[in-house]
Simulated assay, not measured.
Amino acid sequence: MHKRFLEWIASAKGVRQLINIYGPYFGAGVKVTYINKDFRQANVSLPLRWYNRNYVGVHFGGSLYSMIDPFYMLLLMNNLGKDYIVWDKSADIEFIKPGTGTVSASFIVTDEMLTEIKAKTANGDKFLPTYSVIITNEDGEVIARANKTLYIRLKKVAA
């Protein structure tokens, strides 16, 4: 493949653009509005549309969950590198109030998170951290809280 294309597809801008045309996100109306160059932060939004409303006219819960699904995994994979396995393990979401209008969520990977992951996995053990995500409406009110548990460990080195 062309070198420039490979560089683009691995960049934060390329990843953001690809996610935005990825069928499940495009179809749900999820929009990745920002991923910073070092993959330490991502922001997503979801406008209320006729195709992502539930029976009573507010955001469908599945769409709210899908908007936050892969982002901690994605950010951590890009920060930890190819020596680590990073998977989503489990999640829960609590709906606080009806979501109307455009809702959004932010994900931040800190130095402390990376230090803890590296320390807990240094001897080959798995680490199952849980990170919280807040979904807010346009007024900054919390409409949902989710917890994402990840599975992280160093890849085994072939003997």
Rank of each mutant, 00 (worst) to 15 (best):
V15I: 13
G124K: 09
V15L: 08
L6R: 14
V142G: 00
S11N: 08
F95P: 01
A122I: 11
L150F: 10
V103R: 12
D69H: 06
K82Q: 11
P70W: 15
I143N: 01
A12I: 09
A159N: 06
P70H: 14
M1Q: 07
R16V: 07
G27P: 02
F71T: 01
G61K: 03
D139S: 12
D83C: 02
I108F: 01
N78V: 03
V109H: 06
V15Q: 06
S66E: 04
M67N: 08
I21Q: 06
I68T: 15
D88R: 00
N20A: 08
I21C: 05
Y131G: 00
K31H: 14
D139G: 03
Y151T: 03
A91H: 11
Y65T: 07
S132P: 00
V58R: 08
G14W: 05
R145Y: 05
A159W: 08
G81I: 06
K82Y: 00
L76N: 11
W50E: 11
S45L: 02
P24R: 01
K89L: 11
I135N: 03
H2F: 07
R4K: 03
E138A: 14
D83R: 13
E141D: 09
R53T: 08
V103I: 14
F60R: 15
K97A: 12
I108K: 03
E141F: 01
L128C: 05
F39A: 07
Y51K: 09
I143G: 04
S66G: 02
K89F: 15
D92L: 08
P70N: 13
K120P: 00
D125C: 05
L80D: 06
G57F: 10
W50S: 14
V30Y: 13
A146G: 15
L114Q: 12
A119M: 11
Y65A: 12
Y25L: 12
L154E: 05
R49Q: 12
Y72I: 01
A10N: 14
S90R: 11
K13R: 07
W8I: 06
N36I: 07
I85F: 09
T110Y: 13
S106I: 05
S11H: 02
K31M: 08
F39H: 03
